[in-house]
Structure formats: C-alpha cells, structure tokens
Design a binder for these strands. Structure first.
Lengths: 156, 156
DNA sequence: GTAAATATTGGAATATAATTCCAAAACGAA
DNA sequence: TTCGTTTTGGAATTATATTCCAATATTTAC
C-alpha cells in the first residue's frame, strides 16, 4: 500500500490508461514481463485503489452530442445546506459530466456539461440549472474545440 | 453507421461506460441477451467509432496528485499560428489533462491541470505556461472538491 | 394479411486468455 | 557469503472470447 511504484508498475499504469481492455498477455509483452507477475501487479494495484476502474470512452459527436460547455455558477449564500442541495440536484442531471467546487472571487462551481445542441442547452439552463435554489449567477463558455482531452494522469 | 441505436445498444454503452472491463458474458447477462449477439453489437459499435476506446481511470490522490486546477488563458493575438503553437507546446505537458478553446470575452483557452502540490503548480505556471509565446493572461481556479467527475456521456 | 427476403439471435465447437500453483531465480540484510 | 524474503516464469486448469450455422424474429413487398 505504502510501497513505491517501480518501473513495471508505472509502465502498467501508463499502458492501461491508454488501453484499458488490453489482454494481460499483450500487456505483459508490452512491458517485457511474463503474464503471471504482470497480472499479479495489476490486481495488486486494483486492490490498493490505485486503479479506480475501467471505462469505455464514447464518441460524443457520433452520439449526437454536439455542444459542450463550461458553466461558472455563483451561489447566493455560502451555507453547507445550499451547497449540498445544489450538488444533490445536479447529480441527477446526466448532461453534467463534472462539477467542481472552485476557488476564486467570481464563482463557486464549475460545471462541464454536454448536450445535443443549443436548444437542449437552453432547456438545461432554463428548466434545470437556474431553477435550483440558491443559484444566483451563471456564466457559460462554449467549447469550440478540444485539442487535448485526456483521462490519463501523469504517473512519472 | 447511420443506423439508430436500439435498446440493447444503449444498455451496452451505458454498461461499458461504467464497467469497461466487464466480460462479454457478464455484459450479455446484464442486458438480458446471449453472449454472441452481445459481442457482435459491441464490435460493431467499436467499428462504427461510437466507442472511442477503453481506459483505466487512476486515483489521483493515491498517485500523490493533490492539486487540480482550471486555468483560463488569454492570448495576445488571435492568429492561427499563435494558437497552433500554443496547442503544440502544451500537448507535451503531461500535467495538462484537457485544453479547450472556448467562447467568452475573458479567455481563449480553458485548461484542466493536475499536479502534486502548490509548489509543482507554481513550477508549471512559471516554467512552462507563462513562457509560451502569446500567453498574455492567466487566471487560476483551484479545485476544492469534485462532487461529480464522470466520463459517462448521456446515451438516452 | 401473407409470404418471401433480410436481419438477428442463441447454442455448440474451437481458439484465446485468465488464473492458480509451485519450483527457480533474484534480491536484501546481517 | 548465507539465510530469509520477495518476485518471477512456466505448466496445468479454469474461464472467456470467437466463430459458425441453424433457428427465430423482423421487415418489406404485394
């Protein structure tokens, strides 16, 4: 658990962050280790919680999701119940991919949202977001393109 | 390719977005279909580019990456070469998880960055980001917590 | 509504891969 | 070096993926 990651572990993590469904045999080959210790290391890192899980990444465009936006949100009162009520509500909105509580004078939350088009975005803003108790300010930034969009953390 | 997704396809995508390394047998069981058509559908959606790929998601905290930040960046000139030079440079920085070109008066780019601590963040800002030609303004927002942090797109 | 054509399914057989176990090798400490 | 510990790699077993085809379901044309 407290053990440091060695070269093999780092290679495994880097590989799995790019190819999460690689077979153990290919993975072992890729890092120049035989399959059994390779699998053992993967399982250990899963157990240790270093690997949170495996997911498929879908193509937003092919799913018809053409509009991504970041939304800065300000709350009227900075009370714990205001915040947790807000968080609970947006947890039920599938178009919200991320919600971060952030520092900075201008906003409390930063949301990453994905929807079909501008119509759907308007619906989301008017029917959902601005109706949440305590939301006092909303500022949208639309994504024109994303030259980098990775889930891979630096393992170094 | 142009074919619509049916109920099975949507169930498959929803499941794989949560459990990317589920076995085909379990997946088939989960969506109440037998293994062979289930596998065929998965392969088809991979071929069609609906599934971009599979990745392992790592635990940032366990990797010692304790500081996430969003950085709004303004450029001095809005010329194509300024922008592509910027994009090429940050593509080489592993602490940059995302880079989005965004609308809005106050910034051109929004970056999502993850580093070990505030020291590493300072290094990143001073040694890397602000040294890139054309970067005229930088505004950082630090992430205090992330109640939602998902990679799962709404399939509906 | 029926019948032909098409697409999809489910099961059996085969090929691949994961998992387990243990002896051998590598590594560390005294 | 030598003992004790950890890690490796190969063989055997178990589980899973993949392929193929007959049976079923769905669609289309009339």
């Amino acid at each position: 658990m407290t053990e440091e990651l060695d070269r093999y572990d780092r290679l495994i993590l880097e590989t799995l962050q790019k190819r999460g469904r690689i077979t153990n045999q290919e993975l072992a080959e890729a890092i120049s280790l035989s399959p059994s210790p390779c699998l053992r290391r993967v399982k250990q890192m899963e157990e240790a919680g270093l690997i949170d899980g495996y997911v498929a990444l879908l193509n937003a465009r092919k799913l018809g999701l053409h509009l991504m936006a970041f939304i800065e949100i300000s709350m009227d009162k900075h009370t714990p119940d205001r915040f947790s009520a807000f968080e609970d509500t947006i947890a039920g909105y599938p178009e919200v991919l991320e919600c971060h509580l952030i520092t900075g004078q201008s906003a409390d939350y930063l949301l990453k949202v994905i929807v079909r088009d501008m119509d759907a975005y308007q619906q989301f803003l008017l029917q959902k977001l601005t109706r949440i108790e305590g939301v006092s300010g909303v500022h949208s930034s639309f994504v024109l393109k994303s030259p980098i969009n990775s889930t891979a953390l630096p393992v170094s």
